[in-house]
Design a protein around this nucleic acid. Structure first.
Lengths: 146, 146
DNA sequence: TTCCTTGCAAACGATTTGCATTGGA
DNA sequence: TCCAATGCAAATCGTTTGCAAGGAA
């Protein structure tokens, strides 16, 4: 589920952080590439299997986050899910099901995205705060839970 | 830090859920009224003091959430912060400091808010998802961390 | 009296870490 | 060779819960 070019880029980033792109880490990246939204360590463990124990998954996710390859997303009941950073997936937002907790990525049309970006900049200039990023989190019911 | 009218409304809601508006619960509501953003159980405990033990704080927050008086906000490292529901505070968004983790409320001008609301509706009609609410989370650096 | 509420301590679940072992450049 | 990476188990940390005591209607 990984493309060679992405793999090379990830490897380069990891090398820049003096860490190796090992088999276990490749499996995690690959699982995230195939995902349609953020995944928790437990979800990845279920998908990848016991070949990569939970503690290694957590360590891998930490390393990937430090290298800017994945980004955490905080979910209900203290669950942290990770997804590939936006330089890989492209900028997007989240649909969060209030019933089952699943999170799905959604990209919004360019003009609207520009609106949002502008809005965020405006807010930053009004208050003492320097915006660096934004996320529109939409809560509701997913197709399966309707 | 609480107004009599708010207190009465809260009491009414709690009664509707067959729970009492006790001293401990009043202290939590009062602390939240005086807050400028979501607060975690630990933060409330630090402010209110050991008069209300952590376990009671958690129970109180759960009760208040079920009664629609507070709403959870998920923060880094599995921390859940609570704030008063929007029928009390008014609709608003969050400024999240990437450095210190503090969350601050911010309201955006009505026309822009309408834009966002419309955008969310549009997305809902494009994908199989029924939007019920939205939150624009703006990450950046707060005044103290700049 | 009758439930709701509280406090304490024990239990939980997600995540982190110590340490000895393995593995890649 | 040498240091990063791994696996396991134990430890942490925020949060939840069982249970007996306290309190309001």
């Amino acid at each position: 589920m990984t493309t060679p070019s992405l793999d090379r880029e990830v490897e380069k980033r990891l090398h820049g952080h003096d860490v190796r792109y090992t088999k276990g880490r490749r499996m995690v990246v690959s699982a995230l590439v195939g995902a349609d939204g953020p995944k928790s360590a437990a979800e990845l463990y279920a998908e990848i299997g016991p070949g990569v124990p939970l503690s290694s998954l957590y360590r891998t996710l930490t390393v990937l986050e430090e290298a800017g390859i994945v980004v955490p997303h905080l979910g209900a009941r203290g669950l942290t899910r990770y997804e590939l950073a936006e330089w890989i997936t492209g900028h997007h937002h989240h649909l969060i099901c209030v019933q089952c907790g699943q999170v799905e990525d959604v990209a919004i049309p360019q003009p609207q995205e520009a609106q949002v970006r502008e809005l965020v900049e405006d807010i930053g200039s009004l208050v003492a705060f320097t915006p660096m990023g934004h996320a529109l989190e939409i809560e509701g019911r997913c197709a399966a839970c309707t």
